[in-house]
Design a binder for these strands. Sequence first.
DNA 1: TGCTTTATGTAGCATATAATCCAGAAATGA
DNA 2: TCATTTCTGGATTATATGCTACATAAAGCA
Lengths: 216, 216
Amino acid sequence: MTACENNSKAAAARGKRPLGRPRQFDPDQALEAALEYFWKNGMRTTTRELEQTLGLSQSSIYNTFGSKLKLLEAALDRYEQRADEQLLRPLIETEDGLEAIDRFFVTLKKWATQGDHRGCMLINLMAEDGGSTQEIVVRARRYRQRVRNALKKALQRAAQAGETFAGDIDGRAELLMCLVLGFNISARGGASQAELGRLVDSVRVHTGSWRLAATA
Amino acid sequence: MTACENNSKAAAARGKRPLGRPRQFDPDQALEAALEYFWKNGMRTTTRELEQTLGLSQSSIYNTFGSKLKLLEAALDRYEQRADEQLLRPLIETEDGLEAIDRFFVTLKKWATQGDHRGCMLINLMAEDGGSTQEIVVRARRYRQRVRNALKKALQRAAQAGETFAGDIDGRAELLMCLVLGFNISARGGASQAELGRLVDSVRVHTGSWRLAATA
DNA sequence: TGCTTTATGTAGCATATAATCCAGAAATGA
DNA sequence: TCATTTCTGGATTATATGCTACATAAAGCA
């Protein structure tokens, strides 16, 4: 649920209309717009820009979300949840090994280029912030850990299935994680769809070189 | 030479002292301090911080360098020149192939972790700016091109020396470039020396997998 | 109909920021 | 000495920014 500040804490939950004047906008929709804008423009987003983008006055924004940082964090919650579902889950909830990694990078390309060139919101924020906002640092570290683990699990499955050799799983996961970061920064830097496509191909070729001769 | 605004245009060039009151500081030293500070703190550096860091008043800074962006660009000129000398030249001016690439990543690690965790100044700026400052976009694109080319040349040398297979040089150069970006963002994100060291090892292992069986 | 509660719009506050102005200082050459 | 040129320190300007105050609007409840 959308983490709002006031009202409706659990009021609307019971069919009961909450006390006082009702909101004239949909917080969920506003959060969605904020997510889009933050993703593209990062922390430099100003509260006036948010006014324009969300179509709300500052009072409404602050009344609903508390502060700029809280709004960003609410947007990040949503972002992470979606990234988990669309990027990580397919990498984790499968029997595949190397195939799953290939698919992951293909999905990552789509993910990093929806709309304009945006890359990964969290990685962008981390790079932009450069360690000065604790909330971002913590989130970014946690997120990278999740991605790294998912990649490692996929490599372990591949090794167990005899698809690849069993050595240096950690090193290879680290290398893939590094490629994920580089890929996102490439997208952020304005790499074209074609360039990113070629990059994904190169990754595929390279993970392909980890494949043992088929014994089937 | 340090690109200053006023005075000494070509005056000091002829041994002639320039007219008017002489500068009471060394522009070269000031630029060095600006480079350090910009490298660590990016574009968010304020003119007051520059006052503190350079030990100069705003008037002196503006009189000497013109504007914040111009000072940043002067610092970037120096940065790029040094990166060319210390990172790229050893990769270009050598007969080695894969060895040179290994050495490049080792040097890159040192480069990206001098002082604190800083990564590459240009890549950081690119990520931070996100495409809104044209000067940065252009510089970053040009720089990445230089790195990519140097890596490609090294791979071509390796292929010609029979050290590695000749196929997909472009793809592999692209992959290495992506690793360079990821490596820098890792450093920027606060990765420890140990983590970065392991990453360099992984890169070595995997460029090593491109090595053909020794025929000597 | 008051009274309470919540939301909204307008205006504003305190601070920060890039850049400029200006009076005075320090050098030159006549 | 004086005129000219350039540098320096400190104040200043115009604008931006995150956030808040306050009066008013719209709902429920008594």
